[in-house]
Every structure is written in C-alpha cells, then in structure tokens.
Simulated scan of single mutants.
Amino acid sequence: MKPNEDIFSINSKDEFNAHALAIFKHQAINGEVYKEYIHHLKLDVEQVKRIEEIPFLPISFFKTHRILSSKNPIEVTFSSSGTTGMVQSNHYVTEVYRYEQSYQKAFDEFYGSITGYCFLALLPSYQQRSGSSLIYMVNDLIEKSKHSQSGYFLYNHDDLFEALVELKAKNQPTILIGVTYALLDFIEQYDIDFPELIVMETGGMKGKRKEMVREELHEQLTKGFNVPAIHSEYGMTELLSQAYSLGDGIFNCPNWMKVLIRDTNDPLSLIQNGKTGGINVIDLANINSCSFIATQDLGRINNDGSFEVLGRFDNADIRGCNLLVQ
C-alpha cells in the first residue's frame, strides 16, 4: 500500500492498520527527526507489524525541531499559543489541502453539511495572534457556510447576544465555537435560552481564569446557554485532525485518527482500556510531518473506542486544547 492513498475513505480497522503501517514506514525513512528518534530506540522498522509496535514521537520535539517527512515546499506554518517567554510548537504543513479535507470531512461525519449551519466564533486569544490552526479552520467553516450572520465576535458581546436571539427566532441551526474563558465571560453578562444551539468549547483559560474541572465548567455553560450538553473539540497545533465530543467529555475520532494510551511509567508500552495514561495520537492526515505523536495529555479509552481527556502530565506547559485539569 502506498502511503498517499486516500486515508479519508477508511471504513474498517484492518484498513486503518494497513494505512498506518504504510505511513509509519514512509515517515521512518523520510522523516529525518523521526528516523533519528527510531534509531536511538534501536528499533528495526521492518519488524514493526502492528500499530501497537509503532513508536510515538514526543510532542515536545515540535518545539525544538522541524518535523517533516516531505521535501515539498512549506505552504503554511501553524504555531501553538503560549504565555510570554514560552517556546512555541511549530507545525510545518506542506500540503494544507490535507488539513482542509480532514476538518471538512470530520465535520460532515459528526455534524452534517457545513452549509446547514451558521457559525459564530468567540475566540479572542486565538484571533489576536498569527499561526493558529483553529482560526484557519474556523475561517474556512465561516466562508463555506455562506450564511450572512456567520462571523467572529472579539469582545463585542452585545452583537453576539443579538445574533443569537435572531438566529433562534429563525430556527437557524447554529454553532458557537468559543474559548472557555470567553464563553464564561459571555454568560456572566447575558441570559441565553437557546436549547438548539451547539456550544463547542475549545478548551483552555489562557491564564484569564482559574482552571476548572470539566464537570463544573460544563454545568455552568449548560445552564448559561440553556443547552442540554456542551460539545468539545480535541485538536492541537501538531495535528491535522480533530476528535469531537457531543457531550459529557466523551470524544470520538474520525476514521483516519486513533487514540492509544501509554503507560505513564513506561512511555514505550501501551495499557488496556479503562486505565489512565498518556494519550498517544495516530493522525493519518499528518503524512508529511509525523502521524504518531505522544501528547502531554492524560486520558483513558472506553470499551467502545471513545476516549476521555483527564488532565496533563505534571510540569507540562499549559496551552489551550481541552487541557482541563481534573
């Protein structure tokens, strides 16, 4: 199997595994940093026959190295958010259309057609800096929705409130994508009664508020917007795919993405479902960078394949991607 075959048409576990192994071998040969990392592990690439045997690159490498497995020109560089003086991660993307395909197809899988929604964005911390992959995605969703009221609301909460009232009156399916602290700021000012609204929090207080456990946060947001559940997106600068939660902090991946859980004491070993450990992500859309990333998030996998994000490793940098400490 060639590693550039259409990964977005995967519809079985066997297909996923075959694609993952093909991409692993491609990146183990063509990714200089990943190749060196594998060399230091003294791993024979040809002996890797199962995805559970694939080594995952620590996500911190994106702060110190150019993680590439392609010679193609870089089309866009996504950078992580962070406080002043914090080293940012950089994700060099050589084929940005893969990112566009990934989030468009994932959205269609979880929510249906983009054109069926009005998108409202309350993302001040992301909007006020350059290099945000989230802003790149939201810009595209707003444009493709072709809805006249789709757009950003920086700090103009009055306009956002008026838009929500109007959209509810028109029975317009609407998604409000917001950074956590901004959503909390908004509901402290306004009483919203819009049960059909999809509120999607992207995580992170950005140093604006004290971190909260997910249950407390979602309880406040469900009451504030009078919605039955809070949706969430699990993505990060270093990935080209996202998982989504339609409520209760239970995330599911699109068919070209998979989460595995590693032992916190032995990062090269995986642990069984139901146990807490470090989140490893396989993102097959990230073919020209690295598709096998060991994040600094803690989580667990449920028996149905869904997963939960339970916090961060101690001393890990705080940044906004559903990094709610519990």
Rank of each mutant, 00 (worst) to 15 (best):
P3I: 02
N4T: 08
D6I: 00
I7T: 04
F8S: 03
I10L: 02
N11H: 12
D14G: 06
D14Y: 14
N17M: 09
H19M: 15
I29V: 07
I29Q: 07
G31Q: 06
E36L: 02
E36A: 04
E36F: 02
E36K: 13
H39D: 07
L41G: 05
L41S: 06
L43K: 15
V45L: 06
V48E: 07
I51G: 13
I54F: 11
I54Y: 12
P55T: 06
P55Y: 08
S60L: 02
F61N: 05
K63P: 05
R66P: 00
P73E: 03
I74Y: 01
I74V: 15
V76S: 12
F78M: 05
S79M: 10
S81E: 07
S81I: 04
G85L: 15
M86Y: 07
V87W: 12
V87F: 13
V87Q: 15
N90V: 03
E95Y: 01
R98Q: 12
Y99F: 15
E100V: 14
Y103C: 00
E109C: 05
G112N: 09
T115Y: 01
G116N: 15
Y117W: 13
F119Y: 15
F119Q: 07
L120R: 14
L120W: 13
P124R: 13
Y126R: 12
Q127W: 03
Q128G: 12
L134V: 14
I135D: 01
V138E: 03
V138T: 09
K144M: 04
S148F: 10
G151R: 14
Y152G: 12
F153I: 01
N156S: 04
N156L: 01
N156M: 02
H157L: 14
L160A: 12
E162H: 14
E166K: 12
K168I: 04
A169R: 13
N171L: 12
P173C: 12
I175M: 14
L176D: 09
I177Y: 13
A182H: 11
L183A: 08
L183Q: 10
Y190S: 05
F194Q: 09
P195W: 08
L197I: 07
K206Y: 11
G207L: 01
K208M: 08
R209H: 03
E211F: 02
R214I: 01
L217D: 02
E219C: 05
K223E: 04
K223V: 08
N226K: 11
N226F: 01
I230A: 04
I230W: 01
H231R: 02
Y234N: 10
G235A: 14
L239W: 00
S241Q: 06
S241C: 04
A243S: 14
L246C: 02
L246F: 13
G247D: 04
D248E: 13
I250L: 07
N252Y: 06
C253W: 00
P254R: 02
D263A: 08
D266Q: 15
P267V: 10
Q272R: 14
G274A: 07
N280T: 02
A285Q: 00
S289G: 10
A294G: 06
A294R: 06
A294F: 06
L298S: 05
R300Q: 06
D304G: 05
E308F: 05
G311F: 06
D314K: 10
A316E: 04
D317M: 08
L323M: 11
L324T: 10
